[in-house]
Design a protein around this nucleic acid. Sequence first.
DNA 1: CTCTCTTCACGTTCATGCACGTTTCGATCA
DNA 2: TGATCGAAACGTGCATGAACGTGAAGAGAG
Lengths: 251, 251
Amino acid sequence: MFVAERRELLLQRLQADGKLVARDLAVELGLSEDSVRRDLRDLAAAGLCQRVYGGAVPVSRALADYSARRAVEPDSKRRVAARATRLIRAGDRVILDGGTTTLAVARTLPRDLAVTVITHSPTIAAALVDHPLVEILLLGGRVYKHSAVACGAATVEAAQTITADLFLLGVTGVHADHGLTTGDAEEAAMKRVLASRAADTYVLASVEKLGAVSPYKVLDLGAVTGIVTDAFEGEPVDQLRRAGPELILTG
Amino acid sequence: MFVAERRELLLQRLQADGKLVARDLAVELGLSEDSVRRDLRDLAAAGLCQRVYGGAVPVSRALADYSARRAVEPDSKRRVAARATRLIRAGDRVILDGGTTTLAVARTLPRDLAVTVITHSPTIAAALVDHPLVEILLLGGRVYKHSAVACGAATVEAAQTITADLFLLGVTGVHADHGLTTGDAEEAAMKRVLASRAADTYVLASVEKLGAVSPYKVLDLGAVTGIVTDAFEGEPVDQLRRAGPELILTG
DNA sequence: CTCTCTTCACGTTCATGCACGTTTCGATCA
DNA sequence: TGATCGAAACGTGCATGAACGTGAAGAGAG
């Protein structure tokens, strides 16, 4: 990737997220923080962003003090996504579920990480097209509007032909008694099929999902390898842990 | 290959990929990096591209990266897209090819038009998720980075199971003698398969495509029902018309 | 032979990562 | 409240390798 190209990407990201974090960008772009800082410095010198401690913000919307910026810090989904990304090893075949958290995973995949991503989400596939090394395997079928993923017989059939090392699963409810749940029956079935194709399944559960229950059961807690969450140690987390899965905290 | 010819190729490649990498081009064209660099230097001097360390990018910053190009289509593509949209009737099953022009079609679909859209492009599928009435059928398979569409055996197989009323085809070259051409062999084959599944095939050809020739043949002009273009009446248009297809002008 | 295009050789510039000393920030303590 | 301390972020200088431009030499077409 060219320098000019990279800076273009940074500006684009700045507009989308409202801020740039040097450390995260370094990991994501697969280069040292020094180089990222150099980019930010040059962009700031060109008047395209404003440099702040830890990263950069848009010129117009510069926040007064550091603590106020802390408030806009990576929201919980970003944190969970960043931690989940670290579960992926070079060469892995990874199934990415649909949803905003897994989309964040796709966007934070380091650019020097060569993996095969299998997904039934056109949104995730589209987000990964720009990645230089990732090979994308798209599972086709009828696209359900509810959460913008392909579901149904054709998709299940396509899923049956593949295997993977890892499945990053998104759900809307994670409950010690009711297990993993989501809002659509067809999607729940799809998630089960995908889980059956991967050696390990990890649930991405930002803190608001814990304790929540949705109408349709996906899997029991015992059926997954682990749960990635940004919740802190405590009784709710312990309850989940007793049900079987490894609890991976972002803390 | 003549120098002028090679530079034509470079420009074409630049428009397709959004960037040129000196090293890759040297290997691909079978000559030294020196010569490639000289070409890039001359093209930049003529204002046809912008030189960067490692290669070259388009002059306009709007064209600098593919994602930006997806956001703002030139007027010509929008005109063609708008006219092509009028070929679609309520209840139709429509195959949408990948590419910026067909993406513009997806975006301009009236929100009260109920159709089934079949596509092998995750980008187009993602763009249609917000549409209230469209039913999306996604063709899966390995996603080719070149133009961000699914191709290959699995995709062909999926395509064989469907039929459609209409196929809106995007190509990079429309030429009276050389027919319809595109920049990738695999994609060319994919487009042929899709054409075979639809009752009618219409080519979307904004004016800069007319008279252009790319390396890989898709179909003969006689194999398609019509060509939608924003070119004006004249000898070039007449030449195409004599080859068989109906010419639909936006003018 | 002449002209053009190409490659090769050379010294130069550029991008990057590392090392080191400095600054900034939040937390802790008086 | 104000002072102090450690960690993180920062800037600078430097080394390295890649990419670059220039000029000379070689190859091929007319």
